[in-house]
Design a protein around this nucleic acid. Structure first.
Lengths: 229, 229
DNA sequence: TCGAGTCGGATTGCATACAACTCTCCCGTG
DNA sequence: CACGGGAGAGTTGTATGCAATCCGACTCGA
């Protein structure tokens, strides 16, 4: 692995961690000094980050961490609603018993963590969920689809996304996983695709909901409407 | 525009022209000498081409022009069938009269060229067709969707693709354009999406058909079946 | 006081030199 | 004769220095 590769991962991690906040500039010389490298590999890493959409290059002025707007989030979900169902549509006739067992294991571990419900558990669920989706993408066996999703999903949102789920929504998400596994084990791509579509739309709804207080999260508007009825 | 940008376009053009054939290596020093530039901007251009999927980087060994397999073509069509309908689905409620007029003009010019049917006209149709699709993508007003399609479609195939169309198929393609314009002018996104889906699937069928002799192209298998029946 | 021009600092863009790595070919050995 | 090891050439990876460009502040003039 070259130095440029390492720098790429380091900067990416720092963006995700919020160490490089949105809108801030990433200076070649600064990072170079810090990592005891010349500007060359840093330049190369920044170029890759630009083409992956993590930072934007302002000519002769620097590389700035991109700021995500509400519209960006909507665009991404719109594409995920198309692409992620296609992942499982392809995966259904291709997936093997071994991978299904892995998915089953991941689902089980997520459910166990879901029962606890504390913040640390939710973080861990997010990680397992990423692995779950990665397994599905691998089963789909389409390098281009994989690459598209990698460049699109860009966990800056989904990193903390599970924290926006209500307990019911989190539970529903676990149900989706189970149903996906059932559909895939039967080789029913359209069933799996439908579940995945619902899965993504649910995530979208949680994400686009105005940042709710805990109060609102436990007693969302639609439920209040139900109670009044 | 920087030197690296120019090099990027030059190399890309040469790959499309077949000047750099698939599987051949693009040497940094060679191009540098030829363009009287140092390796630095060439390196940068090659990295962009790698991330755009035109060449693949073999660590410490060079950048090789990617070779397209049948499977690659199928993968691309599978994604286009998803993404291009989404383009017009979005475009329908957003497109303005001016752009519709442009599309109409392009369709008309393509039809006129279609009547002639010689090789040069087919080449020109291909260019106009690219502009037609570019207008649609612009109307969709989704930078991410635009970028995805740009990295996916990569005219290495579709460059000569129209030459694989039979006269009937070419005519059908023109019909699709007209129907798209009608649907878009009525703001009917689902209609437009359906037409586009058919449009892409037709292109796929023509593309995946085993390379036909002129004989085969004029008298394809399905037509022979019709005659026997 | 406001505006235009200019100068300075900071940053990226590019050129050049050197280091590290990989592959190949050849030679020696079993 | 087959196989392993090592040297060499060629290519990419990295460091460094200089040039070009951009932004902001300051000064000068109206």
């Amino acid at each position: 692995m070259t130095a440029a590769d390492r720098v790429y991962q380091i900067i990416k991690k720092r963006i995700l961690d919020g160490q490089y906040p949105a809108g801030s500039y990433v200076r070649e010389a600064t990072i170079g000094q810090e990592l005891a490298l010349s500007r060359t590999p840093i330049r190369e890493a920044l170029r890759r980050l630009v083409s992956d959409g993590w930072v934007e290059a302002i000519p002769h002025h620097g590389a700035r961490v991109v700021a995500w707007t509400q519209r960006d989030v909507e665009e991404v979900f719109e594409l995920r609603v198309l692409l992620e169902p296609q992942v499982v549509r392809r995966a259904a006739p291709r997936i093997g018993a071994e991978r299904l067992a892995t998915l089953d294991d991941l689902a089980e571990r997520m459910e166990a963590l879901c029962e606890r419900g504390d913040d640390a558990s939710v973080d861990e669920i997010a990680q397992l969920n990423n692995r779950f989706h990665a397994e599905l993408v691998a089963a789909a066996d389409s390098p281009r689809l994989q690459r598209l999703l990698e460049t699109i999903v860009q966990i800056p949102v989904s990193r903390r996304s599970f924290h926006r789920y209500t307990r019911d929504e989190l539970h529903g998400s676990m149900q989706h996983h189970r149903e996906l596994i059932r559909a895939l084990s039967l080789g029913d791509g359209e069933w799996a695709a439908s579940v995945m579509r619902a899965h993504i739309l649910a995530a979208r709804a949680a994400q686009l909901r105005p940042a709710a207080s805990d109060e609102e999260a436990r007693e969302p508007a639609f439920r209040r409407r139900l109670h009044r009825a």
